[in-house]
Amino acid sequence: MSVEKVKQNYSSREKDRIFEQEFLPHIGSMYNFAYRLTFDEDDAKDLVQETYLKAFRFLNSFQQGTNAKAWLFRILKNSFINDFRKKSKQPAKVDYQEVETFYNSEDVDVSMTTDLRVETVQHMIGDEVSNALNALAVDFRTVIILCDLEGFTYEEMSKILDIPIGTVRSRLHRARNLLKEKLQAYAKSMGYNK
């Protein structure tokens, strides 16, 4: 995917304005995303800080009028993969077997075998939802956060994650099926859905 790189030449005043008005308002979403990647408050803080410092350093690569939030999320995601995962004291919880099984299955199964019910979902509390989401491998967790929590479009997700839209869709589909399995298992263990 080619990303057009047109360098801007902002004055320091413009830089400050963009940083204050277009970048900083997203710090809440950024911090929460970082926390859901690292599961650690200090790590999340470092990751967000690193992201904002990079964003400022490379501000001339940012085009005004484009989606600042998507641009920031892309930097954060790259920082997490390139720098952070390596030095993080807590290795990201990735169930590689789970990832592999799902990435390698070509057939997209559209049948719905879950007997999860709307009422069960509506009665779930925050912790239960969190646990189910956090139990997913990081790549699957990420697409659900970007799409359902942050409301990014497929096209924006494709740019943030550097993958084609088709891959965004299939990954999201698999992530949702996995999430349903976790929710279903949880509902069963709690005696719902009898």
């Binding site: 929460n32 926390y35 999860l116 939802v129």
Partner: peptide, 17 residues
């Protein structure tokens, strides 16, 4: 309906730090 309610659940019930 189920698909929508799961999306809604993610959006509204996850604790925001």
């Amino acid at each position: 309906n189920l698909e929508q309610s799961i999306k809604e659940m993610i959006r509204t019930k996850l604790e925001k730090k």
